[in-house]
Design a protein around this nucleic acid. Structure first.
Length: 427
RNA sequence: GCGGUCGUGGCGAAGUGGUUAACGCACCGGAUUGUGGCUCCGGCAUACGUGGGUUCAAUCCCCACCGGUCGCCCCA
Protein backbone atom coordinates (compact mmCIF):
# COMPACT_ATOMS: atom_id res chain seq x y z
CA UNK A 1 0.00 0.00 0.00
CA UNK A 2 1.67 3.18 -1.12
CA UNK A 3 -0.91 5.81 -0.27
CA UNK A 4 -1.43 5.96 3.45
CA UNK A 5 -2.77 8.55 5.80
CA UNK A 6 0.08 10.30 7.61
CA UNK A 7 1.16 8.82 10.89
CA UNK A 8 -1.11 9.63 13.77
CA UNK A 9 -4.07 10.45 11.55
CA UNK A 10 -7.14 8.37 10.82
CA UNK A 11 -10.06 8.40 8.45
CA UNK A 12 -13.46 8.60 10.08
CA UNK A 13 -15.53 6.32 7.89
CA UNK A 14 -19.32 6.64 7.52
CA UNK A 15 -20.12 4.11 10.21
CA UNK A 16 -18.07 6.01 12.77
CA UNK A 17 -19.02 9.40 11.43
CA UNK A 18 -22.59 8.67 12.45
CA UNK A 19 -21.41 8.26 16.04
CA UNK A 20 -19.48 11.50 15.87
CA UNK A 21 -22.56 13.30 14.61
CA UNK A 22 -24.65 11.89 17.41
CA UNK A 23 -22.18 13.04 20.06
CA UNK A 24 -21.72 16.43 18.40
CA UNK A 25 -25.44 17.02 18.28
CA UNK A 26 -25.82 16.08 21.92
CA UNK A 27 -23.02 18.43 22.88
CA UNK A 28 -24.45 21.28 20.82
CA UNK A 29 -27.76 20.75 22.55
CA UNK A 30 -26.11 21.03 25.97
CA UNK A 31 -24.20 24.14 24.88
CA UNK A 32 -27.43 25.69 23.73
CA UNK A 33 -29.04 25.15 27.12
CA UNK A 34 -25.99 26.66 28.85
CA UNK A 35 -26.30 29.58 26.41
CA UNK A 36 -22.89 29.21 24.81
CA UNK A 37 -22.29 30.32 21.22
CA UNK A 38 -20.11 28.61 18.66
CA UNK A 39 -16.87 30.16 17.44
CA UNK A 40 -14.75 28.94 14.55
CA UNK A 41 -11.17 30.05 14.28
CA UNK A 42 -8.52 29.26 11.66
CA UNK A 43 -6.78 25.91 11.60
CA UNK A 44 -3.44 27.68 11.82
CA UNK A 45 -2.15 30.83 13.44
CA UNK A 46 1.02 32.82 13.51
CA UNK A 47 3.41 30.72 15.56
CA UNK A 48 3.76 33.55 18.00
CA UNK A 49 0.13 33.19 19.08
CA UNK A 50 0.93 29.84 20.62
CA UNK A 51 4.38 30.74 21.86
CA UNK A 52 2.91 33.61 23.83
CA UNK A 53 -0.49 32.12 24.46
CA UNK A 54 0.40 28.58 25.48
CA UNK A 55 3.81 29.38 26.93
CA UNK A 56 7.37 28.79 25.82
CA UNK A 57 8.17 26.40 28.64
CA UNK A 58 5.42 23.93 27.77
CA UNK A 59 5.96 20.59 26.07
CA UNK A 60 3.45 21.63 23.45
CA UNK A 61 5.48 24.60 22.30
CA UNK A 62 8.89 23.04 22.85
CA UNK A 63 8.45 19.81 20.97
CA UNK A 64 4.94 19.17 19.71
CA UNK A 65 4.00 21.95 17.29
CA UNK A 66 3.49 21.50 13.58
CA UNK A 67 5.27 24.66 12.49
CA UNK A 68 5.99 25.60 8.90
CA UNK A 69 6.92 28.57 6.82
CA UNK A 70 4.53 29.74 4.14
CA UNK A 71 5.55 31.08 0.77
CA UNK A 72 5.79 34.56 2.19
CA UNK A 73 8.28 33.47 4.82
CA UNK A 74 5.83 33.75 7.72
CA UNK A 75 6.07 31.18 10.50
CA UNK A 76 2.72 29.50 10.94
CA UNK A 77 1.61 26.68 13.22
CA UNK A 78 -1.25 24.23 13.08
CA UNK A 79 -3.17 24.88 16.28
CA UNK A 80 -2.17 22.51 19.10
CA UNK A 81 -5.01 23.63 21.39
CA UNK A 82 -7.91 26.02 21.41
CA UNK A 83 -7.53 28.63 24.10
CA UNK A 84 -4.79 30.67 22.47
CA UNK A 85 -6.66 30.88 19.16
CA UNK A 86 -9.94 31.85 20.75
CA UNK A 87 -8.21 34.44 22.92
CA UNK A 88 -6.51 35.91 19.87
CA UNK A 89 -9.87 36.09 18.10
CA UNK A 90 -11.43 37.69 21.18
CA UNK A 91 -8.81 40.42 21.20
CA UNK A 92 -8.65 40.94 17.45
CA UNK A 93 -12.42 41.21 17.08
CA UNK A 94 -12.75 43.32 20.22
CA UNK A 95 -15.29 40.99 21.74
CA UNK A 96 -14.44 42.64 25.05
CA UNK A 97 -16.61 45.48 23.77
CA UNK A 98 -19.65 43.25 23.35
CA UNK A 99 -22.35 44.32 25.79
CA UNK A 100 -23.10 40.69 26.51
CA UNK A 101 -20.46 39.81 29.07
CA UNK A 102 -19.11 37.35 29.81
CA UNK A 103 -18.61 36.02 26.30
CA UNK A 104 -19.42 32.33 26.39
CA UNK A 105 -17.97 30.34 23.50
CA UNK A 106 -17.65 26.75 22.40
CA UNK A 107 -15.86 25.12 19.50
CA UNK A 108 -15.31 21.82 17.74
CA UNK A 109 -11.88 21.77 16.21
CA UNK A 110 -9.04 19.62 14.98
CA UNK A 111 -5.82 20.04 16.93
CA UNK A 112 -2.35 18.96 15.87
CA UNK A 113 0.50 17.73 18.01
CA UNK A 114 3.64 16.02 16.85
CA UNK A 115 3.75 13.04 19.20
CA UNK A 116 4.20 9.30 19.09
CA UNK A 117 0.72 7.93 18.43
CA UNK A 118 -0.84 5.74 21.07
CA UNK A 119 -4.29 4.66 22.16
CA UNK A 120 -6.19 7.90 22.65
CA UNK A 121 -3.38 10.03 21.35
CA UNK A 122 -3.29 11.09 17.72
CA UNK A 123 -1.28 13.68 15.87
CA UNK A 124 -4.50 15.12 14.55
CA UNK A 125 -7.07 15.07 17.28
CA UNK A 126 -10.53 16.49 17.69
CA UNK A 127 -11.59 18.58 20.60
CA UNK A 128 -14.73 20.08 21.87
CA UNK A 129 -13.88 23.05 24.02
CA UNK A 130 -15.36 25.97 25.83
CA UNK A 131 -14.07 29.40 26.84
CA UNK A 132 -15.75 32.01 29.01
CA UNK A 133 -14.15 35.42 28.81
CA UNK A 134 -14.93 38.48 30.86
CA UNK A 135 -16.01 37.22 34.26
CA UNK A 136 -14.08 36.43 37.42
CA UNK A 137 -17.11 35.01 39.20
CA UNK A 138 -16.33 31.63 40.79
CA UNK A 139 -19.81 30.58 39.72
CA UNK A 140 -18.52 30.67 36.15
CA UNK A 141 -15.80 28.20 37.03
CA UNK A 142 -18.51 25.93 38.40
CA UNK A 143 -20.69 26.49 35.35
CA UNK A 144 -17.91 25.50 32.98
CA UNK A 145 -17.19 22.35 34.97
CA UNK A 146 -20.92 21.64 35.13
CA UNK A 147 -21.16 21.91 31.36
CA UNK A 148 -18.41 19.34 30.84
CA UNK A 149 -19.90 16.96 33.37
CA UNK A 150 -23.37 17.40 31.90
CA UNK A 151 -22.11 16.48 28.44
CA UNK A 152 -20.57 13.28 29.78
CA UNK A 153 -23.58 12.38 31.87
CA UNK A 154 -26.09 12.96 29.10
CA UNK A 155 -24.08 10.73 26.83
CA UNK A 156 -24.33 8.06 29.49
CA UNK A 157 -20.90 8.01 31.13
CA UNK A 158 -20.82 7.16 34.80
CA UNK A 159 -17.26 6.13 35.68
CA UNK A 160 -15.93 9.63 35.92
CA UNK A 161 -13.66 11.37 38.35
CA UNK A 162 -13.45 15.13 38.62
CA UNK A 163 -10.24 16.43 40.13
CA UNK A 164 -9.79 20.09 40.97
CA UNK A 165 -7.09 22.26 42.40
CA UNK A 166 -6.26 25.91 42.76
CA UNK A 167 -3.04 27.38 41.51
CA UNK A 168 -3.87 30.72 43.13
CA UNK A 169 -3.34 34.20 41.85
CA UNK A 170 0.02 35.66 40.89
CA UNK A 171 1.05 36.56 44.41
CA UNK A 172 0.18 33.09 45.71
CA UNK A 173 1.93 31.41 42.85
CA UNK A 174 5.08 33.46 43.25
CA UNK A 175 5.30 32.71 46.96
CA UNK A 176 4.67 29.03 46.37
CA UNK A 177 7.17 28.93 43.59
CA UNK A 178 9.87 30.35 45.79
CA UNK A 179 8.99 27.86 48.51
CA UNK A 180 9.27 25.01 46.03
CA UNK A 181 12.64 26.11 44.80
CA UNK A 182 13.89 26.44 48.38
CA UNK A 183 12.53 23.00 49.15
CA UNK A 184 13.95 21.09 46.20
CA UNK A 185 17.15 22.98 45.48
CA UNK A 186 19.26 21.09 48.09
CA UNK A 187 18.21 17.77 46.53
CA UNK A 188 18.40 18.87 42.93
CA UNK A 189 21.03 16.28 42.03
CA UNK A 190 18.74 13.47 43.14
CA UNK A 191 15.86 14.47 40.88
CA UNK A 192 15.40 13.37 37.28
CA UNK A 193 16.84 15.45 34.48
CA UNK A 194 13.42 16.79 33.50
CA UNK A 195 12.75 17.94 37.02
CA UNK A 196 16.09 19.67 37.25
CA UNK A 197 15.03 21.80 34.32
CA UNK A 198 11.54 22.24 35.70
CA UNK A 199 12.96 23.56 38.93
CA UNK A 200 14.19 26.65 37.17
CA UNK A 201 11.50 26.95 34.51
CA UNK A 202 8.29 25.86 36.19
CA UNK A 203 8.89 24.28 39.60
CA UNK A 204 5.18 23.58 40.00
CA UNK A 205 5.45 20.79 37.50
CA UNK A 206 8.01 18.93 39.59
CA UNK A 207 5.06 18.02 41.77
CA UNK A 208 3.33 15.82 39.22
CA UNK A 209 6.43 14.12 37.91
CA UNK A 210 5.84 10.39 37.66
CA UNK A 211 9.51 9.47 37.94
CA UNK A 212 10.29 11.32 41.15
CA UNK A 213 6.94 10.55 42.71
CA UNK A 214 8.57 8.43 45.41
CA UNK A 215 11.39 10.79 46.26
CA UNK A 216 11.16 11.60 49.99
CA UNK A 217 11.05 15.33 49.33
CA UNK A 218 7.80 14.93 47.41
CA UNK A 219 5.69 14.20 50.46
CA UNK A 220 7.08 17.12 52.35
CA UNK A 221 6.93 19.56 49.46
CA UNK A 222 5.04 22.77 50.16
CA UNK A 223 1.46 22.52 48.93
CA UNK A 224 0.03 25.34 46.86
CA UNK A 225 -3.02 25.23 49.08
CA UNK A 226 -0.89 26.42 51.99
CA UNK A 227 0.33 29.37 49.99
CA UNK A 228 -2.97 30.69 48.70
CA UNK A 229 -3.54 34.23 49.90
CA UNK A 230 -6.90 35.18 51.36
CA UNK A 231 -8.49 36.18 48.05
CA UNK A 232 -7.34 33.01 46.27
CA UNK A 233 -8.40 30.83 49.14
CA UNK A 234 -11.84 32.37 49.29
CA UNK A 235 -12.21 32.06 45.52
CA UNK A 236 -11.36 28.35 45.59
CA UNK A 237 -13.76 27.74 48.46
CA UNK A 238 -16.54 29.43 46.55
CA UNK A 239 -15.93 27.30 43.49
CA UNK A 240 -16.20 24.18 45.63
CA UNK A 241 -19.32 25.50 47.28
CA UNK A 242 -21.01 26.04 43.92
CA UNK A 243 -20.03 22.57 42.77
CA UNK A 244 -21.51 21.13 45.94
CA UNK A 245 -24.72 23.08 45.42
CA UNK A 246 -25.01 21.48 41.97
CA UNK A 247 -24.34 18.04 43.38
CA UNK A 248 -21.16 17.61 41.41
CA UNK A 249 -18.72 15.24 43.10
CA UNK A 250 -15.07 16.19 43.07
CA UNK A 251 -11.79 15.55 44.80
CA UNK A 252 -9.15 18.18 45.50
CA UNK A 253 -5.69 17.16 44.38
CA UNK A 254 -3.02 19.70 45.34
CA UNK A 255 -0.66 18.03 42.89
CA UNK A 256 -2.89 18.57 39.90
CA UNK A 257 -0.81 20.88 37.77
CA UNK A 258 -1.95 21.68 34.30
CA UNK A 259 0.84 21.66 31.76
CA UNK A 260 0.13 25.00 30.19
CA UNK A 261 1.69 28.18 31.51
CA UNK A 262 -1.38 30.35 31.45
CA UNK A 263 -3.36 28.69 34.21
CA UNK A 264 -4.11 30.26 37.59
CA UNK A 265 -6.78 29.77 40.22
CA UNK A 266 -9.02 26.86 39.27
CA UNK A 267 -7.50 23.91 37.43
CA UNK A 268 -9.43 20.73 36.78
CA UNK A 269 -9.30 17.43 34.99
CA UNK A 270 -11.96 14.86 34.27
CA UNK A 271 -10.82 11.27 34.06
CA UNK A 272 -12.36 7.98 33.15
CA UNK A 273 -12.21 5.19 35.68
CA UNK A 274 -13.77 2.62 33.37
CA UNK A 275 -12.17 -0.81 33.19
CA UNK A 276 -9.80 -1.35 30.31
CA UNK A 277 -9.77 2.26 29.24
CA UNK A 278 -6.05 2.22 28.57
CA UNK A 279 -3.10 4.04 29.97
CA UNK A 280 -4.45 7.46 29.21
CA UNK A 281 -7.31 8.39 31.47
CA UNK A 282 -7.74 12.12 31.03
CA UNK A 283 -10.89 12.93 29.11
CA UNK A 284 -10.89 16.67 29.54
CA UNK A 285 -8.83 19.30 31.22
CA UNK A 286 -9.05 23.00 31.76
CA UNK A 287 -8.69 25.90 34.08
CA UNK A 288 -8.75 29.61 34.63
CA UNK A 289 -6.38 31.86 32.77
CA UNK A 290 -6.80 35.40 34.05
CA UNK A 291 -4.09 37.50 32.43
CA UNK A 292 -3.82 35.66 29.13
CA UNK A 293 -5.89 38.20 27.24
CA UNK A 294 -3.59 40.96 28.42
CA UNK A 295 -0.56 38.96 27.36
CA UNK A 296 -2.06 38.81 23.89
CA UNK A 297 -2.55 42.55 23.77
CA UNK A 298 -6.11 42.89 25.02
CA UNK A 299 -7.55 44.63 28.04
CA UNK A 300 -7.49 42.99 31.45
CA UNK A 301 -9.98 40.16 31.02
CA UNK A 302 -10.44 37.05 33.12
CA UNK A 303 -11.05 33.76 31.36
CA UNK A 304 -11.69 30.08 31.95
CA UNK A 305 -12.16 27.10 29.69
CA UNK A 306 -11.50 23.47 29.00
CA UNK A 307 -10.62 21.14 26.17
CA UNK A 308 -12.37 17.81 25.79
CA UNK A 309 -10.89 15.07 23.64
CA UNK A 310 -13.44 13.72 21.21
CA UNK A 311 -11.60 10.49 20.44
CA UNK A 312 -11.28 9.87 24.16
CA UNK A 313 -14.94 10.61 24.69
CA UNK A 314 -15.87 7.91 22.17
CA UNK A 315 -13.34 5.56 23.75
CA UNK A 316 -14.94 6.13 27.13
CA UNK A 317 -18.39 5.38 25.72
CA UNK A 318 -17.04 2.16 24.29
CA UNK A 319 -15.28 1.26 27.53
CA UNK A 320 -18.58 1.63 29.37
CA UNK A 321 -20.42 -0.34 26.70
CA UNK A 322 -22.72 2.51 25.85
CA UNK A 323 -24.46 1.93 22.55
CA UNK A 324 -24.93 4.99 20.43
CA UNK A 325 -28.35 4.83 18.80
CA UNK A 326 -27.85 5.04 15.07
CA UNK A 327 -30.62 4.49 12.58
CA UNK A 328 -29.04 2.98 9.51
CA UNK A 329 -32.23 2.02 7.79
CA UNK A 330 -33.36 3.27 4.39
CA UNK A 331 -36.92 4.29 3.56
CA UNK A 332 -37.19 2.99 0.01
CA UNK A 333 -35.22 1.06 -2.54
CA UNK A 334 -36.31 1.00 -6.15
CA UNK A 335 -35.85 -2.32 -7.90
CA UNK A 336 -35.93 -1.78 -11.65
CA UNK A 337 -36.06 -4.75 -13.94
CA UNK A 338 -36.65 -4.71 -17.62
CA UNK A 339 -36.06 -2.49 -20.61
CA UNK A 340 -34.21 0.76 -20.93
CA UNK A 341 -37.51 2.57 -20.59
CA UNK A 342 -37.88 1.03 -17.15
CA UNK A 343 -34.48 2.43 -16.15
CA UNK A 344 -35.52 5.87 -17.31
CA UNK A 345 -38.76 5.72 -15.37
CA UNK A 346 -36.90 4.45 -12.29
CA UNK A 347 -34.52 7.40 -12.48
CA UNK A 348 -37.39 9.82 -12.84
CA UNK A 349 -39.23 8.20 -9.96
CA UNK A 350 -36.25 8.26 -7.61
CA UNK A 351 -35.79 11.95 -8.28
CA UNK A 352 -39.45 12.70 -7.73
CA UNK A 353 -39.61 10.81 -4.43
CA UNK A 354 -36.47 12.49 -3.15
CA UNK A 355 -37.73 15.94 -3.94
CA UNK A 356 -40.89 15.07 -2.07
CA UNK A 357 -39.05 14.32 1.15
CA UNK A 358 -38.68 10.57 0.84
CA UNK A 359 -35.34 8.85 1.31
CA UNK A 360 -34.72 6.53 -1.61
CA UNK A 361 -31.94 4.73 -3.42
CA UNK A 362 -31.60 2.35 -6.35
CA UNK A 363 -29.14 -0.07 -7.92
CA UNK A 364 -26.38 1.21 -10.18
CA UNK A 365 -24.41 -2.01 -10.52
CA UNK A 366 -26.52 -3.68 -13.18
CA UNK A 367 -27.61 -6.32 -10.71
CA UNK A 368 -30.25 -8.91 -11.33
CA UNK A 369 -33.53 -8.51 -9.58
CA UNK A 370 -32.68 -11.00 -6.87
CA UNK A 371 -29.43 -9.22 -6.14
CA UNK A 372 -31.23 -5.89 -6.04
CA UNK A 373 -33.47 -7.29 -3.34
CA UNK A 374 -30.42 -8.48 -1.48
CA UNK A 375 -29.01 -5.00 -1.67
CA UNK A 376 -32.28 -3.55 -0.40
CA UNK A 377 -32.08 -6.00 2.47
CA UNK A 378 -28.53 -4.98 3.30
CA UNK A 379 -29.58 -1.36 3.33
CA UNK A 380 -32.35 -2.27 5.77
CA UNK A 381 -34.82 -0.73 3.40
CA UNK A 382 -38.30 -0.46 4.81
CA UNK A 383 -39.94 -0.59 1.41
CA UNK A 384 -39.02 -1.87 -2.01
CA UNK A 385 -40.65 -0.40 -5.08
CA UNK A 386 -40.61 -2.87 -7.94
CA UNK A 387 -40.78 -1.37 -11.39
CA UNK A 388 -40.85 -3.60 -14.47
CA UNK A 389 -42.33 -3.60 -17.91
CA UNK A 390 -45.74 -4.60 -16.57
CA UNK A 391 -45.87 -1.74 -14.10
CA UNK A 392 -44.57 0.67 -16.72
CA UNK A 393 -47.41 -0.40 -18.96
CA UNK A 394 -50.07 -0.04 -16.27
CA UNK A 395 -48.51 3.08 -14.72
CA UNK A 396 -48.32 1.40 -11.33
CA UNK A 397 -45.66 0.43 -8.83
CA UNK A 398 -45.42 -2.74 -6.85
CA UNK A 399 -44.92 -1.61 -3.24
CA UNK A 400 -43.47 -4.22 -0.90
CA UNK A 401 -43.13 -3.81 2.82
CA UNK A 402 -39.96 -5.73 3.66
CA UNK A 403 -40.68 -6.57 7.26
CA UNK A 404 -44.03 -8.21 6.57
CA UNK A 405 -43.49 -9.20 2.96
CA UNK A 406 -46.85 -7.69 2.01
CA UNK A 407 -47.18 -6.24 -1.45
CA UNK A 408 -49.68 -4.10 -3.25
CA UNK A 409 -50.13 -2.35 -6.55
CA UNK A 410 -50.13 1.41 -6.31
CA UNK A 411 -50.88 3.77 -9.17
CA UNK A 412 -47.81 5.95 -9.74
CA UNK A 413 -49.77 9.13 -9.13
CA UNK A 414 -50.71 7.91 -5.65
CA UNK A 415 -47.25 6.67 -4.69
CA UNK A 416 -45.96 9.75 -2.90
CA UNK A 417 -49.11 10.04 -0.85
CA UNK A 418 -49.01 6.35 0.02
CA UNK A 419 -45.36 6.46 1.10
CA UNK A 420 -45.78 9.64 3.07
CA UNK A 421 -48.68 8.11 4.91
CA UNK A 422 -46.61 5.08 5.81
CA UNK A 423 -43.25 6.74 6.50
CA UNK A 424 -44.11 10.13 7.88
CA UNK A 425 -47.37 9.28 9.53
CA UNK A 426 -49.32 11.32 7.01
CA UNK A 427 -47.38 14.55 7.47
C1' G B 1 12.54 10.98 21.81
C1' C B 2 12.75 5.68 24.17
C1' G B 3 10.96 0.40 24.76
C1' G B 4 7.75 -4.27 23.78
C1' U B 5 4.97 -6.55 19.86
C1' C B 6 3.10 -7.11 14.98
C1' G B 7 2.87 -6.36 9.27
C1' U B 8 -0.19 -12.58 4.01
C1' G B 9 -6.60 -11.01 -0.87
C1' G B 10 -11.81 -5.98 0.84
C1' C B 11 -11.88 -8.28 6.13
C1' G B 12 -10.37 -12.44 9.32
C1' A B 13 -6.81 -16.22 9.28
C1' A B 14 -3.40 -20.81 7.98
C1' G B 15 1.26 -21.97 5.81
C1' U B 16 6.10 -23.42 3.41
C1' G B 17 13.81 -22.25 1.86
C1' G B 18 11.79 -24.60 -4.17
C1' U B 19 6.48 -26.16 -9.84
C1' U B 20 -1.32 -23.46 -9.05
C1' A B 21 0.02 -19.59 -1.36
C1' A B 22 -5.04 -23.19 2.27
C1' C B 23 -9.57 -21.93 4.48
C1' G B 24 -13.57 -18.70 6.44
C1' C B 25 -16.38 -14.07 5.79
C1' A B 26 -17.84 -10.59 2.19
C1' C B 27 -19.08 -9.91 -2.88
C1' C B 28 -21.06 -11.77 -7.86
C1' G B 29 -23.72 -15.70 -10.52
C1' G B 30 -26.75 -20.23 -10.63
C1' A B 31 -30.32 -23.83 -8.40
C1' U B 32 -35.39 -20.42 -8.05
C1' U B 33 -35.47 -16.90 -16.36
C1' G B 34 -40.29 -10.76 -11.54
C1' U B 35 -38.96 -10.80 -5.37
C1' G B 36 -34.69 -10.37 0.29
C1' G B 37 -33.17 -13.05 4.99
C1' C B 38 -32.05 -20.04 5.05
C1' U B 39 -29.61 -24.05 2.10
C1' C B 40 -26.59 -26.09 -1.83
C1' C B 41 -23.30 -25.30 -6.12
C1' G B 42 -19.97 -22.27 -8.85
C1' G B 43 -17.08 -17.88 -9.54
C1' C B 44 -14.14 -13.83 -7.79
C1' A B 45 -9.77 -11.09 -5.98
C1' U B 46 -3.41 -5.79 -8.16
C1' A B 47 -2.11 -10.64 -1.24
C1' C B 48 3.03 -12.19 1.47
C1' G B 49 4.78 -3.61 4.34
C1' U B 50 9.49 -1.38 1.67
C1' G B 51 14.64 -1.79 0.47
C1' G B 52 18.98 -4.46 0.83
C1' G B 53 21.68 -9.12 2.15
C1' U B 54 22.55 -14.71 2.58
C1' U B 55 21.19 -18.68 -1.12
C1' C B 56 21.08 -22.16 -7.18
C1' A B 57 16.24 -20.49 -5.11
C1' A B 58 13.36 -16.14 0.04
C1' U B 59 6.58 -14.81 1.84
C1' C B 60 9.68 -17.87 5.16
C1' C B 61 16.58 -16.70 7.39
C1' C B 62 19.55 -11.82 8.51
C1' C B 63 19.81 -6.29 8.56
C1' A B 64 17.77 -1.57 7.91
C1' C B 65 13.69 1.41 7.13
C1' C B 66 8.43 2.43 7.08
C1' G B 67 3.79 1.61 9.31
C1' G B 68 0.16 -0.41 12.95
C1' U B 69 -0.44 -1.48 18.07
C1' C B 70 0.64 -1.18 23.32
C1' G B 71 3.52 1.27 26.99
C1' C B 72 7.16 5.42 28.98
C1' C B 73 7.47 10.96 29.04
C1' C B 74 3.47 14.40 28.59
C1' C B 75 -1.18 15.50 27.67
C1' A B 76 -6.91 15.86 24.96
Amino acid sequence: MSMKAPRGTVDILPKDAAKWQYAENKIKDVCGRFHFKEIRTPLFEHTEVFQRGVGDSTDIVQKEMYTFEDRGGRSLTLRPEGTASVSRAFVENKLFGDPNQPVKLYYFAQMFRYERPQKGRMRQLNQFGVEVLGSADPAVDAEVIDLAMTVYKELGLTSLKLVINSLGDKESRDNHRQALVNHFEPYKEELCSDCQKRLSQNPLRVLDCKKDRDHPTMKTAPSILDYLNEASKTYFEQVQEYLTIMNIDFVVDPNLVRGLDYYNHTAFEIMSEAEGFGAITTLAGGGRYNGLIEDLGGPETPGIGFGMGFERLLMALEAENIEIPIDESLDCFVVATGSGEVEKEATRLVHELRTNGIQVDKDYQGRKMKAQFKAADRFQSKYVLVLGDEELEKKTINLKEMETGQQLEVPVENLIEELRKRLLGGK
